[in-house]
Design a protein around this nucleic acid. Structure first.
Lengths: 196, 196, 196, 196
DNA sequence: TATGAATGAGCCTTCATTCAT
DNA sequence: AATGAATGAAGGCTCATTCAT
């Protein structure tokens, strides 16, 4: 189980994802995470303040990569429609590529207490800001409706994506999530006042 | 605290809603619920198999009322668009009218473990079926697009409604949720291929 | 190990004395105390707030009896000299009669942290007040020196008694502690200005 | 924090006194002592067998100085009464001059476990022997009572001194401890059969 | 039906000590 | 001699559930 090459910080976070996906949030004991990471229990506390800190860091680390990757991909697209499609595709494909992470973000981390969830929401804001930017630019360029309520639209984008992924995870990831992206995009876009 | 007139079953469920809203999922001990309901701890187990059973029953009871009320209201509307608007309005207004219940459904019950959430999803299916019916009829009558993916559209409806309410609850229910319903409806409808 | 007749509160305190005397302060786990008392671990927490509360209660309970018994015995004596002798004798005899308690008060409880020791000192004040009263009355009746510094004298009384008992406990209670009382009394009294 | 000139052995002991006085026995971790001493954790173990060894060495080192200083001072006095007064004065003044050490000897080191305290008592014997010598000589020269029980008297001397200092430390060293020495001496002496 | 005292399994975190460098 | 990252054992407390009354 030893993964000597990775720095211990990432090693522990990756272990936490696996343990939580396989055992569930409430059975993800620190000792299990340590064993999975190939370190002693005490070593965890050289890198994290406490158990909660592991989970927040996990979310920050992964969601940070998410936002970064999505920003990169989006930058290469010219229209807002394309940017939104890319965002959905990337979001879907990254979770489809990491089954464990999908379970953790869609099911397990939601079981955390209100305090932890508030901190997770802080991290989420970075993602929501990307959505807001795409929508705002789309309004300015005339791709999206002039009277589009950006906040509501963002809730629709995020709510739809989230619900779609959760449904997919709950169905044991049986179908191809990435393939659905264009249809989700289509549904959203047409609501945004685009002409077909 | 005694509520002698109500049968103990409902008495306990109502107590659970209050205790969970005020203390959070993880601090909603059976003993607290019992005290709030004005019965002894042991009495709970004469009406419910275990703690999980209280929560599922709570959800069933409340969501059952939800679906019933929504079905009634919808029945009086002629077009699918109106039905959908009514569904959203009713959903919003019922939660806006019961702050405790809103907190419980949007925040607290999500902290339950995977198994409980799967059971809750079973209960939710009744609600989703109503949405499906509205969408399907809308397709048949030509109000909605011919090529509408009902399952995806339903996820969009539910995901958007859910995200909107959760955002509202997390913002301490500061603004008028019911007032937003028409705009949410508008966003959704236009995505469904309706002509303005 | 069951002692059904005693109320559980006293049952647990007595168990704590035994466990602490036999295992030492730092090895007096709650689970050991529970087993000794013949109750479940959780039952402890129906009668005490936490582990510290057991120890404070133990000290209050025992020291309360101490002060009460000593007050009773002293009341029957006419002179302050006799009262002081009685106090020493009773203190010695009560600890000589309960080896476990002697170990706990002289050795184990001193290992508690500063916070707990401050609370224990609060309880001790009741005992010190009895000493003060005896000394003050003795001054007024002329049995003790007019210029006696009551606070210093009280420290001498308590310090001497305490050191004597601790030495005796550390020597495994090999000799007859009670037999020493008159000589300790003699040493103290003559220092208080008594004429031989 | 580096104290390059002092040999590391003393450097660590002095650090232990400061850390223990400022943080308390139970928060005086080896790592804190190492940081205060300006050395690495592991270095401690090049000079001391284990943590207990630091504390015993601390006590030996400091108490050794104590006994030595007191012996020196006493040697210059002719009568046993003067010797006893000097002993008390020196004991008081040395602790009054080192607040940290006073806290450590009177409060913190008492929290150590029974084994450590037994070893500390071994060290204390050197001090008690000095007291015994003073008392024995005093008996021989006729300054103290013929029938004085030296062991009891020693317990009274030590118990009174100890209790007096502890009370002073617990009162945050508010008053002048050294000034009390003559009155403590007076109380003790008169109890030893001296004629005023 | 109703009670509520009693049960006991389960886990995060600290810190003295080691050892490869 | 010196370092400091890594180790891993150990225990107080909560709370869902039971059962004698």
């Amino acid at each position: 189980m030893k993964q000597q090459q990775k720095p211990k910080y990432k090693q522990i976070i990756d272990a936490a994802v696996i343990v939580m996906a396989e055992n569930g949030y409430h059975h993800a004991q620190v000792s299990k995470i340590a064993k999975q990471a190939g370190v002693a229990d005490g070593t965890i506390y050289l890198y994290f303040k406490n158990k909660e800190d592991i989970l927040i860091s996990l979310f920050q680390e992964k969601m940070g990569l998410f936002v970064e990757k999505i920003r990169q991909e989006i930058a290469g697209k010219s229209t807002s429609k394309e940017k939104l499609l890319t965002l959905i595709q990337k979001h879907f494909s990254m979770l489809a590529a990491d089954h464990h992470l999908a379970i953790v973000t869609q099911l397990e981390l939601r079981q955390s207490n209100k305090e932890l969830r508030l901190k997770i929401n802080e991290v989420l804001k970075g993602y929501l800001m990307v959505v807001d930017e795409v929508l705002t630019v789309g309004k300015e360029t005339g791709e999206f409706r002039d009277d589009l309520d950006v906040r509501l639209a963002r809730q629709m984008v995020f709510g739809t994506i989230d619900e779609t992924i959760t449904t997919w995870v709950m169905n044991d990831q049986k179908y191809d999530l990435t393939a659905i992206a264009p249809r989700v995009h289509d549904l959203l876009i047409k609501g945004f006042g685009a002409t077909p």
